[in-house]
Each structure stands twice: as C-alpha cells, then as structure tokens.
C-alpha cells in the first residue's frame, strides 16, 4: 500500500514576475516528502481554484510580491469555499504589511510568511495546517 502523501499547490497569482521565492518553498516542501504542484507565473484566482480542485490538494500556498494580496487572497478563499473546498488551508508567502496580516488571518489564511522565513518553519506550518483541517473535517 502506498502511503498517503500530502499534495500541495504552489501558485503565483497576480502580475509580478519573480518566482524565486515560490520555487524555494516548492523545493523545501518537496524535500520534506510532499508532492508539490507548481502552476507557474501570473495565475488568476480562478485558475488557482480550478487547479486546487482538479488536483484535490491538501493545502494551497500563494506567493505574492506585488502588493495585490488584499484583492487576490479573498477571491481565492471565496472560490475555494464556493466549490466545496473551504476546508483546504491557504497560506501566503511574500511581502505583506503588518496591518494587513490580521485582516487576512481573520479571513481564514492559515499562515503568512515574510522574506527570510526559515523554510523548516514553513514546512511545519503547512503540515500543521493540513492536520488541523483533517481533524476539523472528521
């Protein structure tokens, strides 16, 4: 029997073209034994939600450096919940001003990671968020 593996979607919504951070995180998650589905640059919230559905992922990680997070993140959350995946944890990496963090957390974002975050911390947070979602589901 194959053991169950976590499947994580890493996506870059919005228009900025820097995906180094997303790739570093994708690599760290892969090295932690997870299956990472990477969608590439310039994704719309609709594309991200659709990929999350087709791939039936355990969590979604969004990398946003453009400053458009207050527009993009709520839209992704809304689409996920509309399609029956409201329980899938969403985590964000990028440059997020302090005043936006609490608001995003209130919306249901399960982790926000700024520049320089230790990748082990990110891996652990993803794992915990997925576990918490599984418990809530049961």
């Amino acid at each position: 029997m194959t053991e169950k593996r976590l499947r994580i979607l890493i996506a870059k919504p919005g228009l900025d073209g820097h995906d180094r951070g997303a790739k570093v995180i994708a690599r760290a998650l892969r090295d932690a034994g997870m299956e990472v589905i990477y969608t590439g640059l310039r994704q719309t919230p609709e594309m991200i939600a659709e990929a999350a559905l087709q791939e039936d992922v355990n969590a979604v990680g969004l990398s946003i450096l453009s400053g458009a997070h207050m527009a993009l993140v709520p839209r992704v959350l809304e689409l996920l919940s509309k399609q029956g995946q409201g329980n899938v944890p969403v985590l964000i990496g990028g440059i997020i001003p302090d005043e936006d963090i609490s608001q995003l957390e209130k919306l249901g974002v399960k982790g926000i990671f700024g520049p320089g975050t230790n990748t082990h911390h990110v891996v652990e947070s993803v794992r915990q968020a997925v576990e918490a979602a599984d418990v809530a589901q049961d």
Binding site: L29, Y38, M47
Partner: peptide, 22 residues
C-alpha cells in the same frame, strides 16, 4: 518523478498548460 530519497515530488507540467486551464 518522485524523489527516490524523500518521496517528495515537484509536479510542474501545469506550467506549460496554462492556455487550457480554466
């Protein structure tokens, strides 16, 4: 492919398929 060491994987085929998702 899965990594033979960690079992993790980087699945990147969607990157080339952006015209068709949605």
């Amino acid at each position: 492919p899965s990594s033979p060491f960690t079992g993790g994987a980087f699945l990147g085929d969607r990157i080339r398929m952006r015209d068709i998702f949605g």
